[in-house]
Amino acid sequence: MATEDEGLPAQTGRAVLSLATDVGGVAVLAARLLRRMAPPRLDGPELWRNLHRMGVRSLPIVGVTALFTGGIMVIQAGVLIRRFGAEGLLGWGAGFATLREVGPILIALMFSGRVGANNTAELATMTVTEQIDALETLAIDPLAYLILPRVLAMITMLFVLTIYGDVLALMGAAFMGEALLGVSTATFWNGLLESIRVWDMATGLIKSALFGVVIALSSSHFGLSVSGGAPGVGRAVNASVVASATGIFICDYLATYVLQ
């Protein structure tokens, strides 16, 4: 904990150490989970339970976000579309931006806020109330029973939700294009299908898988490494959301650079 009379070098050193501890913690967690995947040591019922509550229950919030995202993109593009009379480019513009960038990143941020934060809060509560210790004393490996199913469920469901969200965002864009700009849906979909390549869609989905890994590992790490009782749970959730968002943007930058 930083104190008021600490100098800048000490505070910087403390921050760097804290960052290194968390990055190292995430890396160690990833390595320990990988070890449990060969051969697979996974609790099947727990995986199904998490797929349902993380994926199915996220459908409404992701759907609403995606629909409005598509609409917002049309509103933003409307000025240029009208000025240059480029109605035929609306489908391409909306599709390119949605599939490659906006869809995966916004859905990942929503997923992080809903599922990642919830995962951290649950694991942190289980840690401070000794439920994780209880699993160990019952000869159950908490990583195989509790963490691995959550990590796999988060990666899988963010991937699936990104496809679902992309489709809804494009439907929202098509609807708003007709309602606001008078661009027919046929023109919109023709423009989209003629210019968008499979790789554009694949790029967004590769990113969503990477974002899923980031959210799953950081939310689990902060949940398991919590200390300080109930106030510690709040701090862990906060740290998890910040770390996930930061990780998403860093990954997005690197993936965009590599996959372009």
Partner: peptide, 22 residues
């Protein structure tokens, strides 16, 4: 890990916070 789990199979524990699974 495996040997420790075998030992733990013979141990029961009650925690201060009960540690019931919510």
């Amino acid at each position: 890990e495996v040997a420790l789990q075998a030992v733990r199979n013979r141990i029961g524990m009650l925690f201060q916070n009960n540690a019931l699974f919510d």
